[in-house]
Design a binder for these strands. Structure first.
Ligand code: MN
Ligand code: MN
Ligand code: ZN
Ligand code: ZN
Lengths: 134, 134
DNA sequence: TATTACTTTATAATCGTTCTAAATACGGAA
DNA sequence: TTCCGTATTTAGAACGATTATAAAGTAATA
């Protein structure tokens, strides 16, 4: 069984078809989809899948530490099944989000009276597809 | 005259009372306010100030390079009149955003086929106010 | 198979942001 | 100083993402 599903089951969550579909869609997905992307992708096979269920499942997964929520785009959250430490590059023209495996700065930057739990770095710029003709 | 206002004038923008008020409010402001914060703060003195005008002015200032738009919070943009290179720490409990003067990583991380124009790092965690009793 | 708490669903509500079109007023020209 | 053209402001509607609601459905246990 899928690792993430097993973890959900272990935590007492029910394994519904909707959750299995969403987790299956996320498995190995490197596109950093938004909630709407996931819903749109699964709708053909699950015509009654509610957008609320997508949001609920994503919230459950994030809460369980099985999924990362990214604040890279100004207007929506993107989700990342790769919970290992890495950064992202976001193309300001097409909006695509790419993985960047840099020397993860786990250093807490020594901020006075602030307990760092997470460091997020985003590189904004123009991706190969968008910058070719310029 | 205010440096930012002078720059706006130089670029051919009209110096309206609304723009002067908004620029004045931002001057030296280290709280990283959102559009709604700015509108709320100025409304008592400018009762007819439209939220649309706040958004329009912020867009103008960002476009002119006189203001930074931050994607730190999940659900809103925050604005920073300090356009010098620095990072931010965001308290996940109270939402406050603090400046972090770290060794600015202008390194473009050498991402294959990606032209980096901006690097943004955010430290998420618990601030002094929120973490005292724990 | 019966039970029940958890889950899903459709829908409405909320919230930040953007759009629209009419009214206003800045700032250069006369 | 007044006039004018156009940039700007305004109120309100529209929009898109997300969250809340309450009724209906179902996974998991005994
Ligand atoms: Mn990633
Ligand atoms: Mn700052
Ligand atoms: Zn691109
Ligand atoms: Zn705090």
């Amino acid at each position: 069984m899928n690792e993430r599903l097993a973890a959900l089951k272990r935590m007492g969550f029910k394994l519904t078809p909707q959750r299995m579909a969403i987790v299956g869609y996320l498995e190995g997905n490197e596109s950093h989809p938004a909630a709407g992307d996931i819903h749109r992708a699964l709708l053909p096979e699950y015509p009654t899948l509610s957008l609320a269920t997508v949001y609920n499942t994503l919230e459950t997964l994030v809460g369980a530490g099985l999924l990362l929520e990214l604040s890279v785009a100004r207007d929506r959250s993107n989700y990342d099944p790769d919970v290992s430490s890495h950064s992202h590059a976001c193309c300001t023209r097409c909006g695509r989000i790419f993985d960047v495996r840099d020397s993860a700065q786990t250093a807490d930057a020594g901020i006075e009276g602030f307990r760092v739990t997470d460091v997020r770095t985003v590189y904004y710029g123009i991706c190969g597809n968008c910058g070719s003709g310029h």
